[in-house]
C-alpha cells in the first residue's frame, strides 16, 4: 500500500522578479512501512519536499496524496489536524519543548493535539520511552539530556500520535557518528515495531546507506534509486 503518491509535483518561489523552481515535476510513490532517504546537496530541495510531505507547505501545482488524502487541498486548520493524526516530525535540532519533561514532550501530541484520555496517554508514553530507551530520563527536562537522548525523545514524540509517516529532516546532523548510527538503527527498529514509514533527509553518505530506497534530488528533479547497501 502506498503512503505517499506525488504526481507532477511542482514547487516554485518568487524571489524578487525571478521565479525559482525548487521541485520540478516530481513523480514518485513511497510504500507503507518504507525506510527511505532524500539525499542531495544543500539547496537541492530536500527540505522543500519534506515540508510538502509534512503538509507544512503546499505544492504550486500537481497532486500530493498522503495516506490517500490529497493534501494540496487542505486549508491551514485541516492541514494541522492532518499532521496531528498522520505525520510525525523529527528535527535536526531536536526541537523539544524546553518547559516540558521528557515524558511530557512525548505526551504533548496525545494531549494537546489528539486529546486522548489519561490512561491511554500514560500507556503509550511509557511504552515509547521504553522502546527508545529513555525511561530513566522521564522526569528530566531537555536541557538535562545529551544530543542522542534528545533525538530519542524526538523519535518517541513523533511516534506518539501513531503517525503513519515520520519525516526526519537531517536527524543526525547534530550528532556524532556513533550516536547517529544508533539513532538510525532506532528509527529502523521503530519502523519494524510500529509499521511506520520513515523518510529522512541527509547529505551524509554513511547515513544514507542505511535507507532501503534513496530519492536523489538534483536541480529540483527527483529520481529513485534502490539502495543495495541497506542493512
Amino acid at each position: 500500500m502506498q503512503i505517499v503518491q506525488a504526481e507532477n509535483l511542482v514547487k516554485s518561489y518568487q524571489v524578487g522578479e525571478q521565479q525559482v523552481t525548487a521541485i520540478e515535476q516530481a513523480n514518485f510513490t513511497i510504500n507503507q512501512g518504507a525506510f527511505v532517504s532524500f539525499v542531495g546537496p544543500s539547496g537541492s530541495g530536500k527540505s522543500t519536499l519534506l515540508n510538502m510531505l509534512g503538509c507544512l507547505d503546499q505544492p504550486s501545482s500537481g497532486r500530493l496524496l498522503i495516506n490517500q488524502t490529497d493534501t494540496s487541498t487542505l486549508n491551514r486548520s485541516q492541514a494541522a489536524q492532518f499532521r496531528g493524526e498522520h505525520i510525525g516530525f523529527i528535527f535536526q535540532d531536536f526541537n523539544l519543548i524546553p518547559v516540558l519533561t521528557v515524558e511530557e514532550n512525548i505526551e504533548y501530541p496525545l494531549l494537546m493535539v489528539q486529546n486522548r484520555p489519561l490512561a491511554e496517554r500514560r500507556a503509550r508514553v511509557n511504552s515509547l520511552m521504553e522502546a527508545v530507551g529513555i525511561s530513566e530520563q522521564a522526569k528530566k527536562f531537555p536541557n538535562q539530556l545529551s544530543g542522542g537522548q534528545k533525538q530519542r525523545v524526538a523519535i518517541a514524540r513523533a511516534l506518539a500520535s501513531q503517525a503513519k509517516l515520520v519525516l526526519a529532516d537531517e536527524p543526525t546532523a547534530n550528532l556524532d557518528h556513533a550516536t547517529a548510527f544508533r539513532i538510525i538503527d532506532l528509527m529502523k527498529q521503530m519502523r519494524d515495531d510500529y509499521a511506520t514509514t520513515f523518510i529522512f533527509s541527509t547529505h551524509d553518505s554513511k547515513i544514507m546507506n542505511a535507507a532501503e530506497s534513496l530519492f536523489i534530488l538534483e536541480d529540483g528533479k527527483v529520481s529513485e534509486q534502490k539502495n543495495g547497501d541497506a542493512k
Binding site: 509534512g54 494541522a80 489536524q81 493535539v113 500520535s161
Partner: peptide, 16 residues
C-alpha cells in the same frame, strides 16, 4: 518562533 513552529508542525491548531 521556532518553538511555535514545532508546535504547529506537531498539529497544534492555531487557536491552541
Amino acid at each position: 518562533v521556532r518553538e511555535i513552529g514545532t508546535l504547529a508542525a506537531m498539529g497544534t491548531q492555531p487557536r491552541t
